[in-house]
């Protein structure tokens, strides 16, 4: 995705066990912080079809 031009950080992977609640909170906070900084996604958002 990043190769295509999606900003680094918009797509993230993490592995959290069901027992790791603190890690889960940390990951969620970090992800939302990064995404907020990036702002709304305007890529892969469909705009109106052009009328000929």
């Amino acid at each position: 995705m990043e190769h295509m031009g999606i900003e680094p950080g918009r797509l993230q992977f993490s592995w959290v066990s069901s027992a790791e609640s603190t890690k889960f909170v940390k990951v969620v906070n970090e992800v939302s912080e990064t995404i907020k900084k990036l702002g709304p996604n305007d890529r892969f958002v469909k705009k109106e079809i052009k009328v000929a």
């Binding site: 990043e2 190769h3 295509m4 031009g5 999606i6 900003e7 680094p8 890529r43």
Partner: peptide, 14 residues
């Protein structure tokens, strides 16, 4: 060559 571009340049290139 593409890897060297920033995200916006990549998006535009594709």
């Amino acid at each position: 060559e593409i890897e060297a571009m920033d995200p916006q340049q990549r998006w535009d290139a594709f």
